[in-house]
Design a protein around this nucleic acid. Structure first.
Length: 276
DNA sequence: CGGCAAACCTGCGAGC
DNA sequence: TGCTCGCAGGTTTGCC
C-alpha cells in the first residue's frame, strides 16, 4: 500500500518511540512473509539496541548495535502499530511483534503478506539485490531533470510505467505517479523517452511537491493504511485524479473529467485535456 | 534487453 | 442474505 510518503511517515513515528531503545523480546508468529525470515531472526534481534530508523525508497531500515540492519518492506497492506493494537482487530495477521526495554511494542500486521523483513549485513547494504539497482531518492539532491531524462532516454514504455520502475527513481508508486503526471501536465501514455527538456523540468518539481505535501499530511489512507499511532493520513483528500474516475478535472475550466485506463496491469487516472 | 501479464495473498465492495 | 467478480498502495518471475 504504502509509497514513499507513507513509509516516511511510519519511519518518523517509529523513530520517535524506538530509537535508542533495546529490543528485549521479539515474537515471530510465522516462518515467512513474502519470503522466508532468517532461521535465526529472533536470536539476531533480541538484545540489540536500535540506533537509528531511516527510509530508503519504500524500505524501512533499522540500524542496530550489531552487524545487521533490519530491513522492513510493507508491501501492499503492511502496517506497524505502536502500542496496543486497536480493539476488534487484535490477533489476526500479527506476524511479528517487537518489545522494547521501556515496554514499547511495535506490531507488524500484513494480511496480504506482500511485505518482507530481512537482516542484511550493515557493511553490504548497498550491494544487496534489494538496494543495488535502486534509482535516486526523489527528494534527494541526486534527483534532477538531467538525471531523470538520462534514465528515461531510449525507453519506449509509457512514462507512467517508467516512473513505477524503481531503478528510474525510487519510492514512487501508483498513486503518486498519477498525481505527479497530472501536476506536470504530462500524459501517462507518452513514451518515456520523450520526457526530456521542458517536460522533465516540470516533472521533477511536480514529483517533489506531491511527495512533500503528502508527507506533511501524514500520507494517504485508502483501505488499511494508518500511521504508527493509529491516526489516519489524510492526503487522499487532496488527490486530484487518483480514484476519481468520472469526476470533473479539478484543474480544467472546461468540462473534462478524470479518465481511468489500465497500463501494465495497473490503473492510471488522468485528464486527457490537461495532460499531453 | 524491453515490455507486459501473471503470480504471490487476503479482504472488501459492487452487482446479481 | 449470500455468492461471484473485480479490484487494491508492490515486487518478482517468466514469457514473447
Amino acid at each position: 500500500m504504502p509509497e514513499l510518503p507513507e513509509v516516511e511517515t511510519v519511519c518518523r513515528g517509529l523513530a520517535l518511540k524506538l530509537e535508542g531503545r533495546r529490543l528485549v523480546r521479539v515474537e515471530q508468529n510465522r516462518p515467512d512473509l513474502r519470503v522466508p525470515l532468517p532461521q535465526d531472526f529472533v536470536r539476531r534481534l533480541t538484545g540489540r539496541r536500535i540506533e537509528r530508523i531511516r527510509r530508503r525508497a519504500k524500505y524501512i531500515l533499522m540500524d542496530l548495535d550489531g552487524p545487521d540492519i533490519l530491513v522492513i518492506h510493507l508491501g501492499m497492506s503492511g502496517r506497524v502499530i505502536l502500542g496496543r493494537v486497536p480493539e476488534g482487530e487484535a490477533g489476526l495477521h500479527e506476524h511479528v511483534r517487537f518489545i522494547a526495554d521501556d515496554g514499547t511494542t511495535a506490531t507488524y500486521k500484513d494480511h496480504r503478506r506482500f511485505g518482507l523483513m530481512a537482516l542484511v549485513a550493515a557493511d553490504a547494504l548497498d550491494a544487496h539485490p534489494m538496494f543495488a539497482d535502486l534509482g535516486p531518492e526523489p527528494l534527494g539532491n541526486g534527483f534532477s531533470a538531467a538525471v531523470l531524462s538520462a534514465a528515461l532516454a531510449g525507453r519506449k514504455t509509457p512514462i507512467k510505467s517508467a516512473l513505477l520502475d524503481q531503478t528510474v527513481v525510487s519510492g514512487l508508486g501508483n498513486i503518486y505517479v498519477c498525481e505527479a503526471l497530472y501536476r506536470a501536465g504530462i500524459s501517462p501514455r507518452r513514451l518515456a523517452q520523450s520526457v526530456a527538456g521542458a517536460r522533465a523540468e516540470r516533472l521533477v518539481p511536480a514529483i517533489r511537491e506531491v511527495l512533500t505535501e503528502a508527507i506533511a499530511a501524514g500520507g494517504s489512507t485508502l483501505r488499511d493504511y494508518v500511521q504508527t499511532d493509529g491516526e489516519l493520513g489524510y492526503f487522499q483528500k487532496a488527490f486530484a485524479v487518483y480514484g476519481r474516475e468520472g469526476e470533473p478535472c479539478p484543474g480544467c475550466t472546461c468540462k473534462a473529467s478524470v479518465e481511468r485506463v489500465v497500463q501494465a496491469g495497473r490503473s492510471t487516472f488522468f485528464c486527457a485535456h490537461k495532460q499531453r
